[in-house]
Structure formats: C-alpha cells, structure tokens
Computed example of a mutant assay.
Amino acid sequence: MTYAIQTHQLSYCQGQQTIVDKLNLQVPAGSIFGFLGPNGSGKTTTIRLLLGLIQTSGPSIQLFGQDIRNDRLAILAKVGALIEAPVLYPHLTGYENLQIGRLARQVGRNQIDSVLEMVDLTQEANKRVDRYSLGMRQRLGIALALLGNPDLLMLDEPTNGLDPSGIRDIRRLLIDLSKLYGKTVFVSSHLLSEMEKFVTHVGILNHGQLLFQGSLTQLQRDFSAENSAQTLEDIFLILTKSKL
C-alpha cells in the first residue's frame, strides 16, 4: 500500500507536557482520512508538525515516501492546507484573492478557473468576499489550498461554524476531490456523525496517543460486535473514555 503520510514515533512536548506521544500515522494515498479526537487531544499540533510549521527532532515524517527534513519545500509543494479559518481579503473578490494566492505559490493563471470549478464558486468569482456566506468563504479557502494541484489536502476543522447546508457542501466537495480528482484528504474534526458519512479511514487521538487507525469498516467491525456500539460516536466515546 502507498501512504500519503507516514510518521515514526512522532512526539512533541511543551515544557513538561507531552502534546503528541510517539505517533505512528499511516494515511493511505487516495483516502479520506478522518483525524478525530477531543479538544486538546493534539490534532492541530500534529497537523502543524506534518506541515513543518513547528519542529521536532529525531522522528521522521514522510509525505509520499519522502522524508520532509530532506527537501521540505519540494515535498510541501505537493500539499495544500487550510488550518482553521482561511485568511482572506474581504474587500477583494474571490477571483482576486485567488490571484494573490497563485502569485504566492507561483502557479499559472489558468489554475484559478480550475480550482473555482472544483469548489463550485465559478458563478461567485467576481463577488466581493465580504458578501460571501461562511460556507462560501470556507470553499474559497479550500480553493486557495488547491492552487498548485497538490496531491494531499490537509484541513483542520473545515466545517466549524457552518450551518447544515454549508456542512453538506463541504462534505460533497471533499468526496469529489477524492473520487474525481484523486486527492488524498486528511481532515480533522470533532463532528463525528458528519465524518461518518464520508471518510474512508479514521485515526482516533486522545492525550496525544493514537488509539486506533484503519478503515472505517474495520473500526466498525472490530468494535461493534464486542461493545454493541452502533455509530462512530459510540465507538469514539468508548475508546476515549477508557483513556481518561
């Protein structure tokens, strides 16, 4: 199996507190990987480590089989990321925001139309961002992350604050990015009932430790019979409560 993300004994501490504890992630290429955990479990810190935004010595982080320490910039060119809310210029149009983004990433102008189509914002491209709904802003943030045609998309809580319609739009978008465009999607969230509708694989993190990783089907098979758990939320609560 080819992995988009692999880590070996990845750890990170702040003072005496361990935030990420010997993490061995394996994210299959082409998957929609739900990275789940309670608030404060280390999800965002892990994403920042994977992106090289914070440093740790020793353990390796491999993206598509390449150690990120060896050629960080070339490897991260294959990655698009949205950490929490997108940084946008509200007085500019969606197209103009993408124009700034594509200059920063040094990619061709033609990619703007491509990513607008991917996130279904073509009709709203020339509207000022301060007139966008929150869901449209999130989709524009994902469009910015898609500039450069990355193989891996990393999203931290992309549906925070969205109404049901906006959440549904993001879900459909992520499914399309995986199935139609062949992207690996790594998405963190605490909305378990929503994640269960579209992820193919999950990793469950608590207190910096990985309690489970594998396909959603495997998770349901392994835990449902033994614990009479019916949903991803049931299994999540069983796993995380046992580690409190």
Rank of each mutant, 00 (worst) to 15 (best):
L50S: 09
M154I: 15
T44D: 04
H190W: 01
Q213F: 06
I83L: 14
G42F: 03
G42T: 06
M195A: 05
G58D: 03
K197Q: 15
R221A: 14
R69N: 14
I5Y: 11
L147S: 07
D21W: 05
K241H: 15
L51D: 12
D169T: 14
E233D: 09
K43L: 06
T44I: 08
N206R: 04
N160P: 04
L49P: 14
T56M: 03
A29S: 15
I19C: 04
N24H: 14
I170P: 02
N24S: 12
Q66Y: 02
F186Q: 03
G203L: 08
Y181G: 06
Q66T: 11
A77M: 11
T93G: 09
V185N: 02
G141T: 05
L152I: 15
R139A: 11
L53Q: 15
V202N: 04
G15L: 01
I75W: 00
A125M: 00
N149Y: 00
K183A: 07
I61L: 05
L51C: 13
D120K: 08
P28T: 00
A125H: 07
Q16M: 13
Q123L: 15
L103M: 12
A4T: 01
L192H: 01
H207A: 15
R69P: 06
F33I: 02
F35R: 02
V119R: 05
L53C: 09
Y3R: 03
V129D: 13
M136I: 13
